[in-house]
């Protein structure tokens, strides 16, 4: 290795290390603040305490928002997995003209600004006389979770050998059983990854939900942002830390089931 190469290589590792530190700093700071005793985010905190977790336990608003968000994310992810898997199979096996365009259309909501989608849907739903907060939220969240499923399942199906289903049928399985025994296990990693990202995208969505929530039904990001703007105290750090813990659990499960490297194949 020449000197220039050594310097270049050293620089690459240095910048990569700095980026890792940069990426993890906000998460570490949040967790540290949540265990502090002071109300004003000083670090290092004069004393450690669990008072913000106790405050969190008493907060009815936040837990209501958590429940709303989990139900909404579960429902829209489930619907997206169903619609998205069918669409991926139909487009891959249908061999009709314009398949490229169909896939691009199904993935396109991800490429557009969420705020613009939110406004467009708000006006359309209002025009159609749709007043239910819940129905509006579910309809809108399926639009933004569906692309994750279509993209990942379509890519996985492209690698799936459909003659395996014929082979299973030759060996005596009925068509539905052949699909369940051969195709579903082969696609399981795609279901896990896309379901996870779809769920998190719904849980995290702010720019679309803001147009459909009201004073009684709020999703977690909306409720949290309201807290941050009105009364910023480390209770938000406590709920954030719990969300970071949840993300870590999701990551561990994802790593066990599909491996971190495959999860990075966005």
């Amino acid at each position: 290795m020449t000197l220039i190469e050594r310097i270049a290589s050293g620089l690459v590792w240095l910048l990569a290390a700095a980026t890792v530190l940069f990426l993890l700093t906000p998460l570490a700071v949040t967790v540290a603040v949540s265990f502090g005793s002071s109300a004003v985010f000083t670090l290092p905190s004069p004393a450690w305490s669990l008072r913000w977790y106790e405050a969190l336990g008493r907060s009815r608003d936040l837990w209501g928002a958590v429940a709303t968000s989990i139900q909404l994310a579960a429902l829209s992810t489930g619907l997206s997995l169903l619609l998205g898997t069918l669409a991926a199979i139909g487009i891959l096996r249908g061999r009709f003209p314009g398949r490229e365009a169909a896939i691009t259309f199904l993935v396109s909501p991800l490429m557009l600004p969420g705020l613009v989608l939110g406004i467009a849907m708000l006006e359309a739903f209002r025009g159609a006389g749709l007043r239910s907060v819940w129905i509006s939220l579910v309809l809108a969240h399926v639009v933004i979770t569906l692309p994750y499923v279509v993209r990942t399942v379509y890519a996985a199906l492209g690698l799936f050998d459909f003659t395996l289903i014929d082979a299973a049928r030759t060996l005596g399985l009925s068509y539905p059983r052949a699909v369940a025994k051969v195709m579903v296990p082969a696609l399981a990693p795609a279901f896990v990854t896309s379901g996870m990202f779809a769920f998190l995208a719904s849980m995290d969505n702010y720019p679309i939900s803001i147009f459909f929530t009201n004073a009684w039904t709020k999703t977690l990001p909306i409720q949290m942002l309201q807290y941050v703007e009105e009364s910023p105290d480390p209770m938000i750090a406590a709920i954030s830390s719990l969300l970071i813990l949840l993300a870590m659990l999701v990551l561990v499960v994802g790593d066990r089931m599909v491996g971190l490297r495959r999860m990075a194949d966005l």
Partner: peptide, 24 residues
């Protein structure tokens, strides 16, 4: 380590991260 540093923040919501940067 690099993979975790990329995927973990991706799985945490934007409100959480923006709030963290307010503190940082």
């Amino acid at each position: 380590l690099i993979l975790v540093a990329i995927i973990l923040p991706l799985s945490v919501g934007v409100v959480v991260k923006a709030f963290a940067w307010q503190i940082v």
